[in-house]
Design a protein around this nucleic acid. Sequence first.
DNA 1: GTCCAGGTCGCGC
DNA 2: GCGCGACATGGA
Length: 290
Amino acid sequence: MKKVIELPEKFNFKAATTDHGWYMLPPFHSNDDMSALNRVEKLSTGKIVMLHIKQDNAKLIIEIEDKKTLTNKESEEIIRKISWMYRLDEDYSAFYKMCADNKDMQEIVTENRGRLLRSPSIFEDIVKTILTTNTTWSRTISMTTNFVTLLGERYSDDSGLFTFPTPEAVLKKDRDFLNQTVKLGYRSDYIYELALNIVNGVYDLDVLKNPEISTEDVVLKMKKIKGVGPYALSNILMLLGRYDYLPVDSEFKKHVKNKYFSGELPPNAQLHQLYKEWGEYKFLAYWFDR
DNA sequence: GTCCAGGTCGCGC
DNA sequence: GCGCGACATGGA
């Protein structure tokens, strides 16, 4: 089965897919030439599908592997999720205007960059963000792979591919399993508690996809999540399409130390003042400055 | 063995 | 509000 989504005028599939590292984390997977992004996805009806996403000129082509035909509702859910993943509703014109005035950011405009791939659900994006803290990227990949493989649902009997686990699936295991078998380490408690609060209705995360909610409201809600500190907060805000908080972590410090301070790190307060001329687009300005 | 990784929490002051 | 040790795991 095949579905087509009309793309905004400015769209660069390869950049949107690979300018952020999420495409390397399961259930996302891709072929080496990056011509398509693939993903196993569980729909709200319970059906599990394999999605193959690629660009054909002004259209996004979605090939959907399935045994039975999909209902209209299921097709709509797939289109809604992919539109979210690729930020098709986001308006980059103000950012592009600022880039056009900056000699080092011309490529962003000419190459239609700026979009950063995100997951269909906030739960998945928060879990993955927590799995990037205080560890290396290679361990982020292995923790995510263990998490998806041990708690997700298999696509088909002969497949090694799985869905991203639901919060309910996390709660079916105990913290020891998350810690010792999934090897999430001390992050197990954070992930378990996040899943628990979602299932109990304490957190209703997907309402935060609404751009009309103020960033301050989102910040207050995110700060309540254990395991989400200043860096994780910034990353989650970026994933929600809000770019005014900088992710001041070891990579950020390494970058600005070498590029702007000739190897000597200034105090934290000064770091948070960087890129301030970019206003609402500080995160993107830093991201594409690297 | 020790140190650190795209940090954060909880405590004491 | 700020400083500091603890935290699981694996690779250098």
